[in-house]
């Protein structure tokens, strides 16, 4: 109904402009006839009952919360956790680019802190909604700085999983698990992840 009202308004507008421009009498009638023809065309082709569907940008939640496993791998109250917490708060508001920016600043100040590079890899994955070469570079730098830490391998696998590459994630996590001490506090995260992916593989 609204669409036909708009059509009527447009016809009135066109006639009004024509009248103001000096069109009178039979020429105004001719214009009205032409507009009627146009309106008929719209009536045939238009879909006045179909509502619009505007979309606002949305940030999908990560499939697995990153804060708990990150604390398990890195510890909760380290000197660098402030940067990570600020970045998390930006990401939670959907401001993923600023979340990346915070950690870029952090890595510039502390270029040899593997945890910050790890956080940057996660933030870039959040921002791109998947693993990109930029995030890969951040994870690789984290692994270079802490070759014995399981965290870069675990979070790289997680990023692969979020990008729709469960096989890649499984390979990375199996590797982490193979080198994991039996009593490591974070071991359960990796085991749960591997079990979930192997279960999904079996179901496929």
């Amino acid at each position: 109904m609204t669409a036909f009202l708009i059509l009527l308004l447009l016809v009135a507008l066109a006639l009004g402009v024509s009248w103001i421009a000096g069109l009178r009498g039979s020429w105004l009638v001719l214009t009205a006839s032409a507009l009627l023809l146009g309106a008929a065309g719209y009536a045939v082709q238009g879909r006045p009952g179909l509502a619009g569907a505007p979309r606002a940008g949305t940030v999908p939640e990560p499939p697995i919360s990153l804060v708990i496993p990150r604390n398990a791998f890195l510890g909760q109250f380290s000197g660098r956790s402030n940067w990570l917490i600020i970045s998390d708060s930006y990401a939670a508001r959907g401001e993923t680019r600023d979340a990346v920016g915070i950690l870029q600043a952090a890595t510039r100040q502390h270029p040899r802190d593997y945890a910050l590079w790890l956080g940057l890899g996660n933030a870039l994955t959040d921002h791109a909604q998947g693993l990109t070469p930029a995030a890969r570079l951040a994870f690789a730098r984290s692994a270079e700085l802490a070759p014995t830490s399981p965290a870069p391998g675990y979070f790289l696998g997680l990023a692969k999983l979020r990008s729709g590459d469960p096989e890649g994630a499984l390979t990375d996590w199996n590797k982490v698990l193979a080198e994991a001490p039996a009593n490591a506090s974070w071991r359960s995260f990796v085991e749960d992840g591997v079990a979930m992916l192997e279960g999904a593989r079996g179901a496929r």
Partner: peptide, 17 residues
């Protein structure tokens, strides 16, 4: 409704041409 308004305006402009 914006899409319908655009299409209607296009039809009316064509008729005036």
């Amino acid at each position: 409704m914006i899409a319908e308004a655009g299409l209607a305006a296009l039809w009316l402009a064509a008729a005036l041409a």
